[in-house]
Each structure stands twice: as structure tokens, then as C-alpha cells.
Design a protein around this nucleic acid. Structure first.
Lengths: 105, 105
DNA sequence: CCGAGTGTACGACTTTCGTCGAACACTTCA
DNA sequence: TGAAGTGTTCGACGAAAGTCGTACACTCGG
């Protein structure tokens, strides 16, 4: 694994309150990560592959928030931790959310 | 007016970034206000008429945030300041947002 | 004109949040 | 085995956000 004692813990989008999702997406860095993830294939992007202005520690924190909000799923792949957006699950729990996220303004 | 030197200043939802809207709705008190407002007729509710656990000062602050996010419009009516949800404008700028807000989870 | 009612402005306080540096754990590759 | 790469955890720091009390401004009804 990539420096972790255990596999990442996920929360089902169905069990996440809307406030939590809104809070997760209200942060510029996290919103940017999600947008870049939207334009990528599932499991194609490792955590460190994102073009955002924040160090490793901060990045790790943000991914934790996105995970807790049920927006992102992570899996360990060798030394790296790869991500995927939970497109279907989130769309089912919060219909129209992805459209809002990707409607750049 | 109701203790104000000038009329409230509003921002067009079209000019508001999504992060700002998300941040406004990520706060429990504000989300509750918006939901109660959704179930009310336009201009029917004054600021002090909301059943939330916060004092006058905090309430005033929250309404300022909602205004800056383009979600709420305010108008002075005698000694009171009445509110309306900007349903159409917001729906046009952020389609599906109201559905998310009112999808209690 | 005075008192009650409504809401804002200001300042202070507390908590939360984003950030960083450093140490650590694990994998991969030479 | 050893070095490089990846990501987490911890502690600390500063900035931002929510809350409250107070003072103030304005309106309305006796």
C-alpha cells in the first residue's frame, strides 16, 4: 500500500446529508479535483496526479473529505492510491449534482 | 426601514460561482431557512419569523450570506424585512439545485 | 412623543478549516 | 538491500466562519 495501515473507508452517498456534499464541493481545491476527475476515466488518476496548488498533506486531507462525502472511491494499486468518481451512486442520491459541478461559472 | 441605512444589495445568481452557492447551503441554519422559505409564499416571511436556534445578530448574518449567494431577495416592508426565494433565477443558473435542497436526507 | 418591535453594525470570542513541515509506512525498481 | 516514489498521520499555525451581546436606526401603535 501507499503508506496506509488499512484500506480507505467509504461512506455510501445515500447515507450522506446534503450539507456534507455541499461543504465538500464548496472548497476550490476539492471542486477542481472533482472536475478533473470527472474528465478522467475511472481508476485512471492517482492522488498525486492532480494539478492543484497544495502539498501532499493537504491533498490527502481533501481526498479524505471527498471520501467522507461519498463522492470519491479509492483503491490501493501498488504504491499508489487511485480514484474514481462515484458517478452513478451520487447521481442516484443527488440527481443533477454533477451537472451543477461541471457547469463552470 | 428596519434599522438599515440603505436598501439591501443583491447579486444576480448568474454572477455567482457555484462554490459560493454550495458554501451558503452547507450551513445547517441557512439550509433550514431556505427550506422553510421554499415552503412559503414570496414576501410572506420576515427575517425574524424563522424557527432556528440563533439570535438576531446571527440571523442577520445568515441572510447576508444567502443574499450574496443570489439565493434570496429582500425588501423592506415597514419595520420588517421580508424575503423571497429567487426560484426562477436560481433554477436558470443552477438547474436542479432546488430539487437537491428539498430532497431531505 | 414615547415605548415596543424589527433588523443591522460592530467588536470579541470560540471553533472550525485549510495549510504546511516532518516523520512514518509501504511499494517499486535498480 | 538500498534509494526513490507515494500517500498518511501528527502537531502547529493562521485565517475564516458562526455566535453572542450591545448599541444603534428605523417603523409602528398608543
Amino acid at each position: 500500500m501507499a503508506g496506509h495501515r488499512s484500506a480507505p473507508q467509504h461512506r455510501d452517498p445515500k447515507d450522506v446529508p446534503v450539507e456534507t456534499v455541499f461543504a465538500a464541493l464548496a472548497e476550490p481545491v476539492r471542486l477542481e479535483i472533482v472536475r478533473q476527475l470527472w474528465a478522467s476515466e475511472d481508476w485512471a488518476r492517482a492522488c498525486g496526479s492532480f494539478d492543484v496548488a497544495v502539498g501532499k498533506a493537504g491533498l490527502s486531507h481533501h481526498f479524505g473529505v471527498l471520501r467522507d462525502a461519498g463522492l470519491v472511491e479509492q483503491r490501493d494499486e501498488g504504491a499508489r492510491r487511485v480514484n474514481r468518481l462515484r458517478r452513478e451512486e451520487v447521481e442516484a442520491a443527488f440527481p443533477g449534482l454533477w451537472e451543477l459541478v461541471n457547469r463552470r461559472r
